[in-house]
Nucleic acid binder design. Sequence first.
DNA 1: TTGTAAGCGTTATCAT
DNA 2: ATGATAACGCTTACAA
Lengths: 340, 340
Amino acid sequence: MYTITLNARINVLTISQVAELAGVSVATISRVLNDSPLVTEKTKRHVQEVIKAHDYHPNVVARSLRSSRSNMMLALVPHISNPFYSTIVQGINEVAHAHDYNLLLCETNTLRSREDVFFSMLKQKTVDGIISLDPAVSRDNLIEYGAKYPVIQCCEYQEALDVPYVTIDNEQAAFDAVSDLLATGCRRIALVNAAGTFGYARMRREGYLRALREQGVGVDPALMFEYRIGEDSGAEVARRLLDLKPLPDGVFFVSDVIAVGAQRALIDAGVRVPEDVAVFGFDDIDMARICTPMLTTVAQPMALIGRKAAEMLFTLVDGKELEERRVVLDYAIKKRQSTR
Amino acid sequence: MYTITLNARINVLTISQVAELAGVSVATISRVLNDSPLVTEKTKRHVQEVIKAHDYHPNVVARSLRSSRSNMMLALVPHISNPFYSTIVQGINEVAHAHDYNLLLCETNTLRSREDVFFSMLKQKTVDGIISLDPAVSRDNLIEYGAKYPVIQCCEYQEALDVPYVTIDNEQAAFDAVSDLLATGCRRIALVNAAGTFGYARMRREGYLRALREQGVGVDPALMFEYRIGEDSGAEVARRLLDLKPLPDGVFFVSDVIAVGAQRALIDAGVRVPEDVAVFGFDDIDMARICTPMLTTVAQPMALIGRKAAEMLFTLVDGKELEERRVVLDYAIKKRQSTR
DNA sequence: TTGTAAGCGTTATCAT
DNA sequence: ATGATAACGCTTACAA
């Protein structure tokens, strides 16, 4: 005999109530719910009818506790309001929903303590996997959790760690961008880069240096800048650029967000773009096609990157082997008005 | 060879193991964990040391199953990559983290089926509360769930429903914007609005009409447009605007995202802004200060709106009474270059 | 003040 | 093929 206990707040059926309604055991209900082949077609149909008739939905928390599966994945981003990240997240979300998963959105604000909390959710099975978009993510967590749980590095990655990743060829993309700047006559090309602790920043700097070297253009350390993500704005970077005498004739920004802001400030200061200074961005966010002049940039396939990362994560979550542990997607140079 | 071992409980202590390590019962551990006053200072300290020494973290799923509290809240947004929403979400997130809560980010893509799934998480205690940013959210869900669970309407709201909300005075803001357009000489002012099914769209239209009426300017239905959120781009809207003969001398857009895109297309078509057509936006997203000409707009305090909504939600989650169930925050008119 | 034990709603392992 | 029942890890009466 089953006791029927109604939820205090609202009439939410439990599996045992459904069992009683259907005249079978909870085990049978559970089997139908999980598509077990051990149920006759007849009882299966009957149970499904009862479930439908009473609008029963299994309790996901209980299921998660018992089965150690949460149907939830986590995306680690530095700041969600950054359009570069939010577009990738949209791609991740598409795939997550297709797999009947939900996305826990976690902003680290590049704080280590936050990050630790999020990674520990893997142990607890609060989430089944993590996609890290955070370039500041710690090696330790990546090593510790990446070895035991589904973890994918997205965009930023640490090669040595054997944690699967999806990215573009940052060095070559930067090389292409700077080569284009050189080909259109620039000779004093500034580099506005993220912190050198980030792999993508190092690789883009390599590409920048290789392009200069290949054209026999000398490197001027005074032209190489670093900005702090989430702290320095494009306008601030522009001020530092304007202090340069003479002005550079081209600037390669490793982020569109910074590029459009700096370009705006440069123009306000009377600089002509691209006549005085050519501006090259990176990412191809919406703003790049809306600012004036429209920004020449390296287009990253952001939604695709997100979708791919999510698909890789699900392969891991399903306990399968990844065909490619290192996925390098194509980028594209978008020539617009901010360069010659 | 690299294999992911799922369901393997590695290194994860349970409460009973900690109890054994500390030489007390699980109940005592639980009491320490939950700050119960029924534990002596001495045992409390001892237990805390053991917890710290072994890096024990309670399993949140089990806790959630038992206590019907998930420490998770849900934000319902139409599209996360829309900068207006992502900035509000950032505000929500700040408060959530301060309360030791996590944010489940749910994109409805304005799909009813999605929405239903998310609301039903309240029943299951998968989430403790919902903040809806979706203007297309259904009355039914708001009524059904709003009466029984913590639900806050954010920006968009349905007055009649008695579900608490935070917003700005949309009618007055639109009135102010259009009045400014009129004051600077515009007489043929177009309205580019969201679907009339949305409350904020109706209220902004009211403000538009009141401003015209007050200045004795006739209303021309041919100047009133509707775009579909997430489908029509600013460029498409601009095309429809360009079909108008003669062109309007001012346009009031109820969304910056559409305004900056349309302005860009207008300029590309040879229209001078603001000389030929003045452009007024709404929201004050980052792009508004970066596009050329810089966009005159109604600034909504997005991060503040998000924070306020989250605080209200927590009041409800804590079972307390809301001091204000209808919060109307201040907006500000930002005059920039796109109007005269 | 501390311990014992009964759930929370599932899934999975036994029997039958 | 189906049913009874023991976990999953925690909170909380109720006992001691």
